[in-house]
Write a protein that binds this DNA or RNA. Structure first.
Lengths: 227, 227
DNA sequence: TAATAAATAGCACGACCGTTCGTTCTTTTT
DNA sequence: AAAAAGAACGAACGGTCGTGCTATTTATTA
């Protein structure tokens, strides 16, 4: 019941070989998600999208009940991509700090690979959607919440593992980490300068430096911050 | 030559009493700037805007040569507002750290007062504009650059004043501070929760804590980070 | 290969977009 | 008070939007 406007239920679940319509629909949605990061969901027109994927407006439109349905499907597609490209690759890593760093690397790499020309899909459409209530907005908020919850979980686990001081304000820590990622997204999209990604990474490390339990308490005054 | 589509040159400069058309135009532009932070510059339609300010499409449109001209005027208006609401109030403060904190307080207060429903105007339209070249985009980039340059100047001055360690990477510091502000904007607009502003402030303080010369070197192990 | 279903194209619609025009009402100047 | 200028109006334009219809082509299946 979660996926919007799912096609005729396949034989029994996993699509053995995707039918023409399915792959066509997937191609449309991927192109649409990319376009939406630059033009916005509401700024994306069926005509432009049809031209982009090389079909007629009506031919494309037959795959969706309405524009709103299309938008929801685009968000769902972006959620799947975000999951497979950012989250899943990092979940192999051990819990705690290691996984946290893996998630951050994964996210920054996802920006660097320019999967979406407008940067992170959800950062791009979140602001436009937050004044336009509806299922699409709800889904976007859900993905963002889940992302922040994931970061929070890593920090909490790191505390349990003794990697991070028990006394640190977890919410504050997650805010600061997320800030570095948002800044990376914004500034990298604006400037196309990979240096922004390096600075984001360094910024996260500087945040972590403050959180880590100084098991080796006061080595040196130097090496206080990164880069 | 900088202001776009300036009206008949007034007697000699400062408008003694604004004529009807001038105040009308100003009202249009202020409403437009607010609308643009939620709908985007291209998503803003003349009809909606006319309804918002309570006039006819054509009556409103008589003030501008074209939509592009209107957009540029909106950006210019937002730049003036940003200047008077954020920058100027902070310029009374002394150079260096004091002014830096004044700028940050000023910016966060500007968010909190919700002058624009979509948060910071420039953050809102920057991403939409960066794939749409033109004078409006150029102006937005210019404002953002000037803002970052201002933060940079504060940090450099603080170094000269001995408030900040000479060895810190200024670019990195500015990135991290700007990150906190961007996160405040994004998360506060999304959640409407003032806690985000507090966390942003605390985040900035945590960044500064690392930069400040430990003239009083090792007071306590405690009080290492804010909140 | 023939039958059947799915996928796409063509076309037309009402609504709204930015834009222009001619007109009217209001303000300023003479 | 007459004349000129400014400001706002309603109507209408060509274009594009999202959205339905009806064919026609292409895939799947028997």
């Amino acid at each position: 019941m979660s996926a919007a406007s799912l096609p005729k239920p396949d034989s029994h679940g996993g699509g053995s070989r995707p039918t023409k319509g399915q792959s066509s629909r997937a191609a449309i949605l991927f192109a649409a998600a990319k376009l939406a990061t630059t033009k916005g969901l509401s700024g994306l027109s069926i005509g432009d999208l049809a031209a982009e994927v090389g079909m007629s407006k009506s031919g494309l439109y037959a795959h969706f009940k309405s524009k709103e349905d299309l938008e929801l499907a685009i968000v769902e597609t972006a959620a799947v991509i975000f999951n497979t490209e950012v989250i899943e690759p990092a979940m192999d890593a051990h819990k705690g700090l290691v996984r946290l760093r893996a998630l951050i690397d994964s996210f920054l790499s996802y920006l660097e690979r320019r999967l979406f020309p407008g940067g992170c899909f959800f950062a791009a459409v979140a602001l436009e959607l937050d004044t336009r209530p509806g299922p699409a907005r709800d889904r976007v908020v859900q993905v963002l919440d889940r992302w922040l919850a994931l970061l929070t979980e890593c920090v909490v686990d790191a505390q349990a593992l003794g990697e991070i001081d028990e006394e640190v304000d977890v919410t504050q820590a997650v805010f600061e980490i997320e800030a570095m990622l948002l800044a990376a997204n914004f500034l990298f999209v604006m400037t196309s300068d990979p240096a922004q990604l390096k600075q984001s990474r360094a910024g996260v490390e500087n945040v972590l430096l403050r959180l880590v339990t100084n098991a080796a308490p006061k080595k040196k005054a130097a090496a206080r911050s990164v880069s």
